[in-house]
Design a protein around this nucleic acid. Structure first.
Lengths: 120, 120
DNA sequence: TCCTTGGATAGATACTTGTCTAAGTAGACA
DNA sequence: TGTCTACTTAGACAAGTATCTATCCAAGGA
């Protein structure tokens, strides 16, 4: 923990998919992020954290929302953490997680179709 | 083929992740789309198709861009097709694929962070 | 110091997935 | 009809992953 996020996707991957083909490296970078979100539990975790009051949520709040054991939730949080989508910091007894909105925004930008003539 | 796309994600999943938590059903729907994109080959296929002149590309164009066998490309195209991200139609000898921009746009909207106070 | 609670790590197992080779299907052309 | 090309399907196998139980670490309170 507190192993800071790599921010791998911060300079790779830029232009929208509809504008120009991804390079191999960009595709690999992006695929890690999409893989982190390619699970219903992690998507719900992400949305629970992102939409929580104050922009952060403690693990105890998150665990209650699922019919899964603690270690499983912990595993999913680790995947999200290592992908750079969230960070957690301990404050006293509890650990609080928050999202990195700039990573979400970057993904959103890659998928955008505005200003494109993709439908020919 | 020509088995029309389910468009599964067209009414599920709407509000941005940062605005409100996803329901279980929404998360499952979305995870299928993200899973389809959670592979470098499929991401590149998607970007090659989406950014190709005319908004569509024939499989022969796509296969040449990878060091993979035809069946493997075909498999990835099937995953993209079944997720509703692309459709293919045969015209004479060749099969042309094009993206569904509205599905990409929907994903982009789910990830957007604009107008949110997510960083508290 | 010991105990309790919040959360992570380790290791095992069942399931999923990316890739291949081999075989099949669909259209074009002679 | 037969053959060639373009692409898909079927089946197998190695690698990855989601989940569990058991265990461990950190912080707080008696």
């Amino acid at each position: 923990m507190s192993k800071q996020l790599p921010l791998v996707a911060m300079d790779a991957c830029c232009a929208p998919l509809t504008r120009e083909p991804l390079t191999q490296d960009q595709a690999v970078e992006l695929s890690h992020l999409f893989k982190a979100m390619a699970d219903p539990v992690r998507l719900r975790l992400l949305s629970l954290i992102a939409s929580h009051a104050g922009g952060e949520a403690c693990v105890c709040d998150l665990t209650d929302a699922f019919d899964l054991t603690g270690p499983t939730i912990s595993h999913h949080l680790k995947v999200l953490r290592e992908s750079g989508l969230i960070t957690g910091d301990r404050r006293g007894t509890w650990i609080y997680y928050r999202v990195h909105p700039e990573v979400l925004a970057r993904l959103s930008a890659v998928l955008t179709t505005t200003g494109e003539a993709v439908t020919a």
